[in-house]
Computed example of a mutant assay.
Amino acid sequence: MSFRQAVGAATGAALLLLLAPTAHALDEALVPSTPADSAVPTVPAASADWVTVDAAGRLGSDGTVTLSGTYRCSAATGPVFVSSSLVQGDSNVRYGIGGTRAVCDGAEHRWANASRPASATFKAGDAHVEATLMELRPGFMGLPLPHTHAAGRQQVVLARG
């Protein structure tokens, strides 16, 4: 690699670092938000993408948590997933509960994620869930970059079964 190429690569990397917060801020501005305890997201008029969380989750006898809801996304250039996380009690720690591949065809679809976090023990009762509709778009040098289509939050009740 020549000196000129090295300087060009370094300049490009520095520019990316400077622009990353701006790109993140733009993405954040485009994310539909939901009230903390609402099952129905607040969707901007220009957006056709949303995700909801069902008000009830399941807690298996082995500790497996199953969460579900609905989503809609209209267009994507990369793979899209519905991820979910759960927090229970006064903890500030969120636990990821699975991930489901989403179909972005403009139609409403159901999603369900299940997982048994090794470092957490959940109990039947109230919990808080956040679901995110996340796309992995081709980015700098072919690396996938996350793009949030929508996020939904819901206070849920975990029930045995």
Rank of each mutant, 00 (worst) to 15 (best):
Y95A: 08
T52I: 04
S115C: 10
G98K: 04
S74L: 12
V103C: 00
V157P: 11
A127L: 00
A9P: 12
T52V: 00
F122K: 05
G60T: 07
A75G: 13
D49M: 06
G152I: 03
T132Q: 06
P146M: 06
T52G: 07
V43G: 06
A76W: 03
S2K: 09
F140E: 11
D37K: 13
M141P: 11
A159R: 15
N113H: 01
N92E: 15
T42E: 13
A25L: 10
V103A: 05
A127Y: 04
P138R: 06
S85W: 05
V80N: 00
V65F: 04
G63L: 00
V93G: 08
D62P: 04
S119F: 12
P44G: 06
L59N: 00
W50V: 02
F3P: 11
R101S: 15
G69C: 04
G152T: 02
W111V: 01
V93A: 11
A124I: 00
L86Q: 03
L133V: 03
R160W: 15
V103H: 05
E108V: 14
A25W: 06
V40R: 05
T22A: 15
V87N: 09
G57I: 04
V87H: 07
L26Q: 14
G8Q: 15
E130Q: 09
R94D: 13
G63P: 01
T64G: 03
S119T: 14
M1E: 14
A14G: 14
G78K: 06
A6Y: 12
S61I: 08
A76I: 09
S33D: 15
A112M: 10
L16P: 13
D105V: 03
